[in-house]
C-alpha cells in the first residue's frame, strides 16, 4: 500500500487523465476494503449476544456483508466492534487492542452503553459514559441492545463511509462519526426489502466491475 499511496500520486499527477485513474484505483481499493471487513469482536456484556452471536448465526447471517470472519486477534482485524458496557478498568485494554490493529482500522460502537453509558449513566462508579474518549468511533449503532438489522445498518453505513474515502491521495483520513439509526416506524419487512435491494445493487455493480 505504501508504494501506491506515497509514490503513485506524485508520479501520476503531471500525466493528463491521471485523476480519473486514481479515482478508479480508489474505487477498487475501497470496494475491496468495504466488502471484507474482518471484525475484532469486543463483547463485554449483553449487546454481544445480539450483535455478535445472533448477527453471525444463520438466521441473520452477517456473512452476506462480508463481515463474518470474526478475529480474536487485533493483528488480523480491521473493524473493532465494541459491544457492551465498558468500565474504567477495561478501557486501557481496549485502547491497547485498538492500537495493535493495523491501518486502515474502523470502529463501530453498538448499544447505548458505549454511546453514552446507557442504563448505567447515573450512580455508576465504574461505567464509562461513552467510548469516544477511549478510541475514535466511526459509526454508532443505537439500541439496548440493537437488533441484528440495526447492526447491519451500521455495517452498511460504514461501507458507505469507506467507499467515499480518497484512499490513494489521503490515506488514513478519518471521517466524522455517524449515528446509524434505523428510521423510526420501520417494519421488519421494510428492512428486509431494503437489504435485499442493497444486495442486488451491490451485486450488479460488482458484476459491472467484473464484466
Amino acid at each position: 500500500m505504501g508504494l501506491i499511496t506515497e509514490k503513485l500520486p506524485l508520479y501520476l499527477d503531471p500525466v493528463p487523465g491521471s485523476s480519473w485513474f486514481l479515482g478508479k484505483l480508489d474505487e477498487v481499493i475501497n470496494w475491496s476494503r468495504a466488502n471484507s471487513l474482518w471484525p475484532l469482536t469486543f463483547g463485554t456484556s449483553c449487546c454481544a449476544i445480539e450483535v455478535m452471536m445472533a448477527a453471525g448465526a444463520s438466521r441473520h447471517d452477517v456473512a452476506r456483508f462480508g463481515a463474518e470472519v470474526a478475529r480474536p486477534s487485533p493483528r488480523q482485524a480491521d473493524l473493532l466492534v465494541v459491544a457492551g458496557t465498558i468500565v474504567k478498568r477495561m478501557a486501557p485494554r481496549l485502547r491497547t487492542l485498538y492500537e495493535q490493529m493495523a491501518e486502515p482500522r474502523y470502529v463501530i460502537a453498538t448499544g447505548s452503553c458505549v454511546i453514552s453509558g446507557g442504563p448505567f449513566i447515573y450512580h455508576s462508579y465504574s461505567t464509562l459514559r461513552g467510548l469516544d474518549g477511549v478510541v475514535p468511533v466511526d459509526v454508532y449503532v443505537p439500541g439496548c441492545p440493537p437488533r441484528p438489522e440495526a447492526y447491519f445498518y451500521g455495517i452498511l453505513t460504514l461501507q458507505k463511509l469507506i467507499k467515499e474515502g480518497e484512499t490513494v491521495r489521503r490515506p488514513g483520513e478519518r471521517r466524522k462519526p455517524v449515528l446509524a439509526a434505523l428510521p423510526a416506524g420501520m417494519t421488519v419487512d421494510q428492512i428486509q426489502e431494503e437489504m435485499r435491494s442493497l444486495l442486488v445493487t451491490e451485486k450488479n455493480s460488482g458484476d459491472r466491475r467484473n464484466g
Binding site: K88, Y122, H123, Y125
Partner: peptide, 13 residues
C-alpha cells in the same frame, strides 16, 4: 462502591 451512601467525583447524580 456498593454501600448506599457511596459517592465519588466520577459518579453522576
Amino acid at each position: 462502591p456498593l454501600r448506599k451512601d457511596y459517592k465519588d467525583d466520577f459518579m453522576l447524580e
